[in-house]
Structures are given as C-alpha cells and as structure tokens.
C-alpha cells in the first residue's frame, strides 16, 4: 500500500470505526506497530526471556556440598561438560544424530524423488497424504508402535524366526556396541526409531527441491548423451543437495534434543536430552542442565551457518 500518496478527497468518516480506519490509512506505521506488538511481546517475553534466563543459569555453578545454586558468574559448569562421563554423552549423541541423518537421507530420497517426478494426479495426493499422516500422527504413538515391534516377543523376532534368520538377529544383537538383550534395549533399536520418526522431515524438503528442477534440464542432459546414471549424478543430485541439507537440519537438530526415544527404546547410556532431563530433575543441577542445552544450540548454530552457505534455506 503506498503510504500517504494522494490527498484525502472524501470527508472523514463518521463513528469510531471510521475514524480509526482513517487514522490507520494515514499512518500505516501505527497499524503495523499495533499488529506486531502482541506477538512480539509474547515471543519476546515468554520465549526469549526464558531462553535468556536459561543461558544465564549456565554461568552459575552448584555447590558440591550443599547442593545449592551459587549465583556467581563462572565457567566451571562448562568445564564439567569436558569431564569424560559428560563428554561421552555429547559424542554419543552427535554420532547418533549423524548416523540418523545419513540413513534418513538414503531412505527418504527415493520417496521424495518418486513423489516429485513421477507421481501425478491421484498418486500425487496419495503420496502427499502418505507422507503427511505419519508426520503429524502422534509422536508417542509412533514410539509405542516400535516398542511393540522391537520387543523380544514382538513381530520382528517372529518374522526373523519365520524366515529362518534368527541366527542373523542373534549375531547382530551379540555385537558389542550396537547389540543388547533385545532390539528394544539396543542402540540399533534407538537408531531405527529415530530414523522412522524423523523421516518425513527429510522427505518433504527433498521433494520440494526436486520439484523445482525443470524437466528440460534432465532432457537436455540425456540429449547430450548422458546415461540416466550420469544425469542423476551430475544434474539431479547436485540440485537436490540443498533439499537434503535442509532436511538434515531437522533430523540432526531433533535427534540432538530428543530425550524420550532413547529413554523408552535404548540402553541405559544417556543422550544429551536425557542428561539435561536428569540434571534438572532428580539431580537438581540446573546450571549443568543449562550448560548441556547450550551444546545442541551451538552445534546447530554452526550447522545452520554451513547450511546457509550451501543454499539450503531456499529449499525449506
């Protein structure tokens, strides 16, 4: 709306509504201010205020003897993150997040590719809902479903037995780091559930990126003599890469911060989210919990900066 361009020709309107309407027309900035104040107050006070309070507490420390919080500026709490027990948690979580991101990209790519380039009409709608319904269906129900599937007496064990592959499952479970008593108490189980729960977040940006690739680029590539494989490697994949990076922002960030999945399906070894939860809850060590939450924020900050340089935000 061009502000204040033409002189007012009509006489001013009657009534409060009319007068207000005229004021807003003459002073669009006032309207903008009124529109922005409520959401900004809410987000600024409730959200940024809380985040700031959290950040502040990470510079406090806890008194080892009394268990009381010592409100003096110190970096001691951050130092504690580097203790082997705590540092292991960070390494474990980041490794898991990286594995989950890679696996989701591999599983998601064919779905996004098919939905973007081959699905038409009814199939397009079907694919859309087929991705959307799992994305929006209850997070806990999805985890619960996997608890049923991965249980020792559950469907997966049964399936392996029917296929006479129980030895394979047992061999996998007896492996040192990824194995365990049953799939539901192993890192393998945690990994599968993470991939499952975050998969739609990876599919959608890949699909969006591929849909923006003009069809004639692919045709030009094959006209110039490229095999389908070469076209994929040299044309499609580089153009889909920003989409993959955009999706990986979600899978990576969500895995870093989750504390429910490893608690329900996994071993007793902690992830960052669980450490935060334990520190603020039973241990009552809010400063250490706050310092732990700063870790994923910093990692995501670096990640987002790198992703922005790769142009991933255009694919969101």
């Amino acid at each position: 709306m061009p502000a204040g361009s033409a002189p007012v020709i009509l006489p001013s309107r009657g009534g409060i509504a009319g007068a207000l309407s005229d004021i807003f027309w003459r002073r669009p900035k006032l309207l903008l201010f009124l529109m922005l104040t409520p959401p900004l107050l809410w987000l600024g006070i409730v959200y940024l205020g809380s985040l700031f309070a959290l950040l502040l507490q990470s510079f406090f420390s806890i008194d080892d003897f009394s268990g009381l919080i010592n409100r003096e500026f110190t970096l001691k709490t951050y130092g504690e993150l580097l203790r082997p027990a705590n540092f292991d948690i960070i390494v474990r979580t980041v490794t898991m997040a990286a594995c989950v991101t890679l696996a989701s990209a591999v599983v998601a790519f064919p779905i996004g590719y098919f939905a973007a380039r081959y699905a038409r009409g009814k199939w397009k709608a079907l694919f859309y809902l087929g991705i959307m319904l799992p994305l929006w269906s209850s997070y806990l129900v999805k985890i619960y479903a996997w608890k049923l599937i991965l249980a020792k007496e559950g469907i997966l064990t049964w399936l392996f037995a029917k296929l006479h592959l129980s030895w394979l499952l047992d061999a996998w479970l007896s492996l040192p780091y990824v194995g365990g008593n049953s799939l539901s108490v192993s890192f393998t189980g945690t990994f599968i559930v993470f991939v499952y729960v975050w998969l739609p977040f990876m599919i959608l940006p890949i699909q969006a990126a591929l849909e923006r690739v003009p069809g004639n680029l692919v045709e030009a590539s094959s006209d110039l003599g490229a095999t389908p494989g070469q076209t994929f490697r040299n044309v499609l994949f580089p153009l889909a890469l920003p989409g993959i990076v955009a999706g990986s922002i979600f899978t990576f960030s969500l895995t870093l911060g989750d504390y429910i999945i490893p608690q329900i399906i996994g071993t007793s070894r902690l992830f960052i989210g669980q450490a935060v939860y334990a520190q603020q809850g039973t241990a009552g060590n809010i400063p250490l919990a706050a310092a732990f939450t700063v870790v994923p924020v910093v990692i995501m900050g670096i990640y987002l900066w790198a992703a922005k340089r790769m142009g991933a935000f255009d694919a969101l």
Binding site: Y47, S50, L51, A53, L54, I249, S253, L254, L256, G257, D258, Y259, G273, V276, Y277, Q280, A289, A290, T293, P296, V297, M300
Partner: peptide, 10 residues
C-alpha cells in the same frame, strides 16, 4: 527450530 527440550527447560 530449536529442540523442544530447550524450550521446555527454558
């Protein structure tokens, strides 16, 4: 965009 646990604990 930030993990939910951060919003929660904040």
């Amino acid at each position: 965009a930030l993990p939910g646990i951060i919003t929660g604990i904040a």
